[in-house]
Each structure stands twice: as C-alpha cells, then as structure tokens.
Amino acid sequence: MGKIVSIHSFRGGTGKSNAAANLAAQAALRGKRVGVVDTDIQSPGIHVLFGLDETNMGATLNDFLHGKCEIEDVAFSVGEKAADGEGRKKLAGKDLWLIPSSIRGREISRVIREGYDVNRLNEGLQNLIEKKKLDYLFIDTHPGLNEETLLSIAISDILLVILRPDNQDFQGTAVTVDIARSLDVTNLLLMVNKAVPNKYDYNDLKQQIEESYKAPLTGILPLNFDIADNASKDLFSLRFPDHPWSRELVKVAEAILAVE
C-alpha cells in the first residue's frame, strides 16, 4: 500500500513546498512511483517548482473538489511533460505526478468562502494512490492547524514537520507534535530548515530537539542565498546535488524511504 507523507509546519515560510517537491523528486529518482498534492489551496505554491504557471496548468485539485473531473484528470505527469529546467530534466521518464491547486483568484476565493469536502479530498487521494499504483504520496500542506490540515495530518503514514531554529517555531512545533500524537500518527519525523551555517552548535540543538519532541531529526538544512536565488523555479536538489542543502535533503528523503 502506498504511503501518505504529509509535509507540515506550524508557521508559514519554513520551506514546505520546496521540501515536498524535492523529496518527491528524490523518491522518484530512486525509482519509486510518486505523487505530490498541493493541499495549500488558499496559497498554492508547489506548482512553480515543477514549471507550471497559468499558461500550462490544466485541470486542478479545485476542479476535482467541485465535482468537475476525476482525480486522474488532474494528475500532471512531471516525467513526461515537465522535463525542462536543468534539475527537472533528470526526472524525464520517472513516475512522478503533480496534483496542483488552482492559482486563479476566483477559485481560490471560492474555496476560502465555501471550504471543501475533506471526505471527497481523501477519497480522491486514495483513488490516486490506487490508480497510479503510488509508492508515496507527498502532501504539501497549508501552515497551521486548521481543520483541513488536521485531516491530512491524521491520515498520513508519515508526518514530516519542518521548523526553523527559533523559539517561535519550537513552540509551534511542540503543539503540532502533541496534536499529531493525539491523532495517532505513527511515524513522526522532523527537519530543520534555514539554519544559519556555523551560527549555532547544531549537534547540541539536534539533541535538544530529539529529546524534547521525542522524534528523530532527519536533517538540518542550511539557510542559503542560492536557494532563495533559485526562487523556487527549479528542483534545487536535482540541479545542485552536491550543495550542502541538497545533501541534507537527501538524508531526509532516505529517512522517509526507510520507514517500514
């Protein structure tokens, strides 16, 4: 059975979308059949990393949620279509599908106004896993702990919580971890992103984090201008595989793939 991996953080801007896209790409690169869903319907972002914009985005998750199409119709084959971009090129022929959220203002405001049926979303994700025979389905979530996000946490087999090394994120992560445990999430993994290189004793921080949250810290990814400069336009870890950020990301990917 395919595994659902939710990528979450308590606060916004931690690097969820970049992590979700790169982790999915790393899994696909290793021959896994992989899906990525943007459930951040209010502020979608992951499509950019796969080279999608208004001009080339077809059916979206919104269309599916509003009953206009089936989930398979939304699945955009990255291996077949988005093999442009120096990093993305490496995914040519791989089994990776993206389920983007609409970036049209009208559709976003409709979702914010009316909400959506989380059951239908869940049903769609299950169907997608079966139809595409997915090994992994990565979910890029909306930050915070609203009802929709809580459901995607609750149904995930693996939850990856991303935090930055600061006290606000430590506090928010504590709440997230408690909620995830209360929702019986069995595999809880942590990842630190935007760590200023050489500023802190990160070995010591890792110990504190693991002790405090009782979950493994699978990678400490550096804050780096190159990533900001990439402006989410390409899959950084594929484009610059030897970069310290990419090396740490691969560790996180390996930890996810190692979960039984």
Binding site: P165, N167, F170, D178, N198, K199, D204, Q208, I209
Partner: peptide, 15 residues
C-alpha cells in the same frame, strides 16, 4: 566564530 548554544525554550503552559 565560536558557535553559540541555542537553548530550546518551550512555554509549557501555553503549549
């Protein structure tokens, strides 16, 4: 550039 120690502080009551 002696690395600093970052102490993880959580307000347990608030949590």
């Amino acid at each position: 550039r002696q690395v600093q120690k970052l102490t993880l502080v959580i307000d347990e009551a608030k949590r």
